[in-house]
């Protein structure tokens, strides 16, 4: 079965079958990452450009390693060293890159919709590595992969997503992905950080973290973007931590085997207490590990590969 999408712009346009195809493909790739020789020839001769207009360590490195382990040639371009500072338009920057015939552009941009804009104008495949406050599809997929790996299945699980929902692309992509595979999503955040109408996407909305995490199978904490918050969204980080931070006490409300997740980078002591971040229920580094396998799967599928037989 070949993959039905040229680009990965977001989860919104993926079906439940697409999502499982990606997860199953990733499962087949995961083992490669633990071999002594961590390389297969699958994408040999292909060129992948990581075009990052926003700072990123984890996601960019993960995509780069994913490409390299599939034997693709990967090139990183970051905005600070690109033509953007010279005032070149996004379209011109992208067209110049495309003239060098890459097969895939993995792209992160601060403007919501920027990868969609390029997908309309370029011939090569675009993989969205995060656009503004819109979507971060590879993050949601690696989160689903991790949950499925730990819990066996996704259907019927109760997942709490807590923090700054309004400005989070991780929250949107996870909301689309989790509801599509039959999980129940509860969102919780301060009144200033829950965007209007989000419940229409199929989530329960709470302003009390306890209501969201009670009996949850998974508690996913979002990063408070300290650098982005104006003074009006939160009175203080101290107050946020008291009302919306995850700690050993409120985690007891969740199921005893609940997973604790965080997309990173963490603000220890703000949205997540160190005792929980390092505690027995955390799967935070599993998320990072699985990120490589999931991104290998995405690159493989948009490069025209077929799904593996396993499922």
């Amino acid at each position: 079965m070949s993959f039905g999408h040229k680009h990965i712009l977001g989860i919104e346009h993926l079906s439940r079958e697409d999502i499982f195809q990606i997860l199953d493909t990733a499962a087949g790739f995961k083992e490669i990452n633990t071999r002594a020789i961590k390389k297969v020839p699958t994408l040999r001769g292909r060129t992948i450009i990581n075009l990052f207009f926003e700072a990123s360590t984890r996601t960019r490195t993960s995509f780069e390693i994913a490409g390299k382990r599939l034997s693709a040639d990967t090139v990183n371009i970051s905005a600070s060293s690109s033509s953007v500072v010279k005032g070149e338009t996004l379209e011109d920057t992208a067209r110049n890159i495309e003239a060098m015939h890459p097969d895939i552009i993995v792209m992160r941009h601060g403007a919501s919709g920027a990868p969609h804009y390029l997908a309309e104008r370029l011939d090569c495949a675009i993989v969205n590595a995060g656009d503004g406050a819109h979507e971060h599809p590879s993050q949601a997929l690696l989160d689903l992969f991790t949950i499925r790996e730990k819990k066996g299945s996704l259907e019927g699980l109760k997942v709490a997503i807590v923090g700054d929902i309004a400005h989070s692309r991780v929250a949107r992509s996870n909301l689309y992905a989790l509801t599509r595979v039959g999980a129940e999503v509860r969102l919780a955040g301060p009144g200033t950080m829950v965007p209007p109408g989000i419940e229409k996407l199929g989530a329960e909305v709470h302003h009390d973290i306890n209501d969201a995490i009670r009996d949850a199978d998974v508690v996913m904490m979002l990063r408070i973007q300290l650098e982005r918050q104006g003074k009006t969204l939160l009175p203080s980080l101290r107050e946020f931590s008291r009302f919306y931070g995850l700690n050993q006490d409120n985690l007891k409300l969740a199921r005893p085997d609940a997973l604790v997740m965080h997309p990173g980078p963490m603000n220890r002591g703000v949205e997540i207490a160190s005792s929980v971040a390092d505690g027995p229920q955390n799967v935070i580094l599993d998320q990072v590990e699985n990120g490589v396998a999931v991104r290998m799967a995405l690159l493989y599928l948009v490069a025209g590969g077929e799904a593996t037989e396993e499922s």
Binding site: S112, A133, A166, P196, G197, I198
Partner: peptide, 13 residues
């Protein structure tokens, strides 16, 4: 406009 569509598109309302 601020509202559901802005929420979905991740654009500031």
């Amino acid at each position: 406009n601020d509202g559901f569509v802005a929420t979905e598109l991740g654009l500031k309302g």
